[in-house]
Simulated assay, not measured.
Amino acid sequence: MTSICVAGGTGQVGREVVRLAVAAGHTVSVLSRHVPAMASADRLDGAAYFAADVTTGDGLAAALAGTDVVIDCLEGQFGKAKKQFADGGARLAAAAHLAGVARIVALSIINCDLSTYSYYVSKAEKERAYAESPLQTVVVRATQFHSLVAMVFAAGARLGLVPTFNGARFQTISPADAAASLLEAATAEAGAPLHRVRTAGGPEVLTMRQMAEDWKRITGARGKIIALPLPGPMGAYLRAGHNLVPEQKVGSETFVSWLEKRRETL
Rank of each mutant, 00 (worst) to 15 (best):
99 A>S: 12
132 E>H: 12
93 A>Y: 08
114 L>N: 05
96 A>W: 11
112 C>I: 00
148 L>T: 06
124 A>P: 11
141 R>S: 12
117 Y>A: 07
130 Y>C: 01
78 F>H: 12
126 K>Q: 14
105 V>G: 08
65 A>E: 06
141 R>L: 09
138 V>L: 12
70 V>E: 03
122 S>Q: 08
150 A>N: 05
81 A>V: 05
154 A>Q: 06
70 V>T: 06
123 K>G: 09
135 L>P: 08
100 G>L: 11
93 A>Q: 05
85 F>S: 04
118 S>G: 01
78 F>T: 10
98 L>I: 06
123 K>I: 13
99 A>R: 10
95 A>I: 09
120 Y>G: 00
131 A>F: 14
137 T>F: 07
82 K>V: 13
138 V>R: 13
110 I>A: 00
103 R>N: 10
110 I>W: 01
113 D>W: 11
109 I>C: 02
110 I>Q: 02
72 D>E: 05
140 V>R: 01
130 Y>Q: 09
94 A>N: 05
69 V>F: 06
148 L>A: 10
116 T>Q: 11
66 G>P: 08
86 A>D: 03
157 A>D: 01
122 S>H: 05
107 L>F: 12
75 E>W: 03
148 L>H: 11
79 G>L: 06
141 R>K: 15
132 E>D: 15
67 T>G: 07
107 L>E: 15
78 F>V: 15
67 T>D: 08
107 L>C: 13
150 A>T: 09
122 S>G: 09
131 A>W: 05
115 S>Y: 02
154 A>T: 15
84 Q>E: 15
103 R>L: 04
99 A>F: 03
152 V>R: 09
155 A>L: 14
136 Q>E: 12
91 R>Q: 13
119 Y>R: 02
112 C>E: 02
108 S>Y: 07
100 G>P: 09
142 A>V: 07
101 V>A: 03
144 Q>S: 07
136 Q>S: 02
84 Q>C: 09
85 F>T: 13
98 L>G: 13
68 D>R: 01
135 L>V: 08
81 A>C: 00
76 G>H: 02
130 Y>F: 14
82 K>M: 14
140 V>F: 07
82 K>Y: 09
128 R>Q: 13
84 Q>R: 15
120 Y>P: 00
117 Y>D: 04
75 E>G: 10
134 P>N: 14
65 A>S: 15
140 V>C: 04
153 F>Q: 02
123 K>C: 13
88 G>F: 08
120 Y>T: 00
152 V>E: 03
147 S>R: 01
83 K>V: 06
147 S>L: 07
108 S>D: 07
84 Q>F: 12
144 Q>N: 06
96 A>I: 11
136 Q>T: 13
152 V>Y: 05
149 V>K: 03
104 I>P: 01
138 V>G: 04
73 C>V: 04
106 A>R: 08
138 V>F: 09
72 D>R: 06
90 A>V: 14
128 R>G: 04
102 A>S: 15
93 A>P: 04
144 Q>Y: 10
136 Q>V: 05
